[in-house]
Every structure is written in C-alpha cells, then in structure tokens.
Computed example of a mutant assay.
Amino acid sequence: MDAKSRNCLLQHKAALEKDIKTPYIMDHMVGDGVLTTLEEEEVRNESTQQKRAALLIKMILKKDNYCYISFYNALLHEGYKDLAALLQDGIPVVSSSSDKDSVGRITTYGLYP
C-alpha cells in the first residue's frame, strides 16, 4: 500500500474502529479477493466489534492498494459514506504496467486497471 493511503487509514483509524461493523465489509473484501476466508474468520473470532474493526484495519494496512480500494468501496456500498469520505483523499492511483495487454482486476464494484 502506498504511503498516502497508509497515512490516511492511520489518521482515521479511531473513527473507523468505533463505527464500522465488519461482517458485511468483509463479505465484499473476500468477494474481491483481497481478504481470505481465514483472515475473515480470524476477525470474526474477536470478542468485541471494536476489536474486530481494529484487526481488520491492521490487516488492511499490511496489504496492497487494491485492498484499500476494496475497503473504501465496501464502506460506500454498506452506507458508511461519511467514513468513506474520510478515506477518499488516500485512494491510490492504481495503474497496470506500461504494456497494453495487462489484464485489469475485477472487484465486486467493477474493473480496476
């Protein structure tokens, strides 16, 4: 994940941990292939909603730009528009390599180059 995305996520970590409910967010992220079912289960096993959200964010911080985008889109899709707005400035520019034959990445929200 690029530094701008990481910093944005860290800056708004407390608000995200306080407000998000992870099950539906994780469903989207597993569907996008950026979170494994094993990681999802690990988050679900946490004792409180805030601990589940904290672990999910910790996992996202260790992943790539596609994970950040998937998380952002999941927030939008699940009605967390205010939280998604906090992360909007950190959305990474995702570009493929310079060759034109690169295949884009499919998410539950569409195609990302």
Rank of each mutant, 00 (worst) to 15 (best):
G31R: 08
T48Q: 06
A53M: 04
V43G: 00
G33T: 10
F71R: 01
A74D: 05
L75R: 01
S47W: 14
S47G: 13
N45T: 12
T36I: 06
H77E: 15
G31A: 09
N65M: 12
G31W: 07
L76Q: 06
N73M: 12
E40G: 08
G79T: 06
M29C: 04
Y80W: 05
T48A: 11
D64G: 15
T48R: 05
K51I: 10
V30P: 01
Q50Y: 13
R44H: 10
E41N: 14
S47E: 15
E42W: 11
V34Y: 02
K81G: 09
K62F: 09
M29A: 05
C67G: 04
M29D: 04
N45R: 15
I60K: 02
A54K: 10
I57L: 11
N45H: 15
E46R: 15
D64F: 13
D32S: 11
E39D: 07
K62T: 10
K58S: 15
G79K: 04
V34F: 03
T37D: 14
G31C: 10
V30Q: 03
T37E: 15
H77F: 15
A54W: 06
K81F: 11
E42K: 14
L61F: 06
I60V: 13
L61E: 11
L76A: 06
G33C: 09
C67W: 01
M29N: 03
N45K: 15
I60M: 05
N73W: 12
G33N: 08
